[in-house]
Design a protein around this nucleic acid. Structure first.
Length: 485
DNA sequence: ATGTAC
């Protein structure tokens, strides 16, 4: 970390840049990190998060989570809430991969049953869930079907045989956010999305078979409520988003917003922060199109879940029901949502941008499935393929301090380019096999980019927010098999 | 992240 900005340490794991540090800052910027994470924090984060603090209508603070690093306009790991009356919406605060997110799925299988057959299982999953750049799914949706998916997300999937009725409530927003309007989505986005349903994509997207080690259960009661109670229990984690569809929506509206900025006489610190008033026609159109992409990403993860059920059923020669393949939860970590918070003593409606950040609502919230309401929202944090992932629970403190938000993963420390220079994909594959992780990848160079050394230490990231009481650790999950794009 | 560049 090198910056000329004044950064005050205000508590053990919380840092603040006062609004006097940059002309135009409307609120302070806050960074969540322990000393180690703070020292290694990408310098771009300081520049970007203080730029975000200048955007119209921002409330309280511009936030960056401990997994934060430089991104397009906003840092990845960024959280910013804007007044829905006079604030903005910005594609850079959501990300190109709209509703990129995580899903965690249980089984009642044990590691000792799965490990001997991991190669066969991974081969089957690799066949059933297409991975890699430009991967096409076996389901080719018509324009009418796509419209249904954009508007109704997971409900469409369940009605069409790609899920079980009980799946819907175990998904953020029940797998579809109302207000999506397909007429705000370009033909080009629709054509890119038509054959990508049920596909994983590339980059850091993966499908992982994981196990629960007994000494990695930190909160037995909450884990049990989330469906994790067995020693050596096998679970499945999926990380993917809206593929080319969401990417095209973001691209389309960045162009629209470039013009809208001139029209409304708005200026921003960085062109990548292109935005429009949320209530303007441009802002509202983007929001409605963004929700179409968000719903299709929920549907994408749902169709992948269906393929997982089919694959496990085939390999273990019994029904998915018998195998207990149930959703724990599904979270979006690239999205903007309308939520209400108490700000300066008054309840206020805000548009919370979470870019590489996860909603982590505390206990009692009506948005949570009834069975989880006593313990808070499950939060799924995907680590690097080598180091494992976490399941956490949201808290009331997060509602007060971070607009109900926490980290989304480990966070990169190394560029993709730098990682490829340090690591060879074929060697990494062998190293991981020795560590008991069977990997199948669509791209060896892509695998090298995702090496564990290219990421922060996930445990430190998780501990930072656990120590502050923003999210509480429930379970750490160890990978045994991985499919990546 | 992304038919990894319009």
């Amino acid at each position: 970390m090198e910056t000329s900005m004044k950064v005050n340490k205000i508590s053990d794991c919380l840092w603040e840049i006062p609004k006097t540090e940059k002309e135009g800052m409307l609120v302070p910027a806050r960074i969540y990190a322990n000393d180690t994470l703070f020292e290694s924090m990408d310098k771009g984060v300081f520049e970007q998060i203080t730029n975000v603090a200048c955007l119209p209508g921002i409330q309280k603070y511009a936030l960056c989570m401990p997994d934060g690093h430089w991104g397009y306009g906003f840092p990845i790991g960024g959280v910013a809430a804007f007044d829905t009356k006079d604030g903005i919406i910005s594609p850079g605060g959501i990300g190109f991969d709209i509703n990129c997110g995580m899903r965690l799925i249980t089984t009642n299988l044990k590691a000792e049953e799965v490990k001997p057959r991991i190669r066969e299982l991974i081969n089957e999953l690799f066949r059933a869930v297409p991975a890699g750049v430009g991967a096409k799914g076996t389901l080719k949706a018509s324009v009418t079907q796509l419209k249904g998916i954009m508007e109704r997300g997971v409900d469409w999937c369940i009605e069409n045989g790609y899920g079980w009725p009980q799946d819907r409530e175990k998904i953020e927003e029940c797998g579809h956010i109302p207000g999506a309007d397909p007429s705000k989505v370009s033909e080009k986005a629709i054509s890119r999305g038509a054959n990508q349903l049920g596909t994983l994509g590339s980059g850091n997207h993966y499908l992982e078979v994981q196990m629960v080690k007994i000494d990695n259960i930190f909160d037995e009661k909450t884990a049990g409520i989330f469906g994790i109670s067995e020693k050596n229990q096998i679970v499945i984690m999926v990380h993917c988003g809206s593929r080319g569809f969401g990417h095209q929506v973001a691209t389309d509206y960045l162009k629209v917003f470039d013009k809208a900025m001139k029209k409304y006489g708005m200026t921003v610190k960085d062109r990548e922060l292109a935005c429009a008033p949320f209530k303007s026609s441009e802002g509202s159109d983007y929001y409605k199109a963004m929700l179409c992409a968000a719903n299709s990403a929920f549907a994408n993860r749902q169709i992948i879940t269906h393929r997982i059920r089919e694959s496990f059923s085939k390999v273990f020669n019994t029904s998915a029901e018998n195998l207990g393949i149930e959703i724990v939860y599904d979270v979006a970590h690239n999205i903007a949502k309308v939520e209400k918070y108490k700000i300066d003593g008054k309840e206020k409606e805000v548009l919370v941008h979470r870019k590489g950040s996860t909603r982590c609502f505390g206990p009692g919230r009506k948005e949570l499935p009834e069975i989880y309401r006593s313990v808070g929202q499950p939060v799924i944090v995907g680590g690097s393929m080598q180091t494992g992932s976490y399941l956490l629970a949201g808290t009331e403190k997060a509602m007060q301090e971070t607009f109900g938000s926490t980290m989304h993963g480990a966070g990169r420390t190394m560029s993709r380019h730098a990682a490829k220079k340090r690591v060879r994909g074929d060697q990494l594959l062998k190293t991981m096999a020795k560590d008991g992780i069977h990997v199948k990848t669509a791209s060896m160079s892509g695998l090298a980019e995702e090496a564990g050394i290219a990421y922060k230490n996930i445990s430190e990231v998780v501990e930072t927010m656990d120590g502050l009481g923003i999210t509480k650790k429930v379970v750490k999950l160890k990978p045994i098999g991985n499919i990546k794009g």
